[in-house]
Computed example of a mutant assay.
Amino acid sequence: MLLAHAITLAEARSYVAALADLARTFDASVEYERVLLQLDWIHGDEFPGLATTGLTDDRDVLYAVAESAIEDLADHGVDALQVELVLDMLDAARARDVP
């Protein structure tokens, strides 16, 4: 994995983890965790750590950055179908994260 790919993956994982931490419901948190598991599965044993300290508490911003980073994974060789499936999972998590 090249450095640019690792940075993009770290960003995606960190922002999804922050969404899981800030989820309004347990079910939404579980769905965000599933997104993380899917990202990890796609990358096998090569994935960077999470860094959620210092990130905004604005869930709309977190979602937008996570979505963008996941989309950018296709530029680093991740199969486009896998990217779309992860984005769909992210959308499903957000749908459960409604007050």
Rank of each mutant, 00 (worst) to 15 (best):
Q38F: 11
L73N: 08
I42L: 15
G44T: 02
L39G: 06
A20K: 08
M89L: 15
D97T: 08
A20H: 03
L50W: 02
I70A: 06
H5F: 09
L50V: 15
R96G: 00
E71A: 12
D40Q: 14
L19E: 05
H76T: 03
D27H: 06
E33H: 09
S14N: 05
W41Q: 10
L81S: 10
D57S: 14
D75F: 10
L39E: 03
A12P: 07
T8P: 01
L3Y: 03
L39R: 00
L37N: 14
G54H: 03
A95E: 15
M1G: 15
E71F: 02
I42D: 10
R24E: 15
V98I: 12
A95Q: 13
T56Y: 04
L62F: 08
L87W: 06
L81E: 14
I70E: 07
G49F: 10
H5Q: 10
L85S: 09
A4I: 08
H76D: 11
D45L: 13
V83G: 08
L22H: 05
L85R: 14
A4K: 12
D75P: 00
A10R: 15
L2T: 13
A69H: 05
A74N: 02
A12Q: 05
D91W: 02
Y32K: 04
Y63M: 04
A18I: 02
V98S: 11
R24V: 08
A10P: 01
A74I: 07
L90R: 04
L85K: 14
V35N: 08
F26S: 12
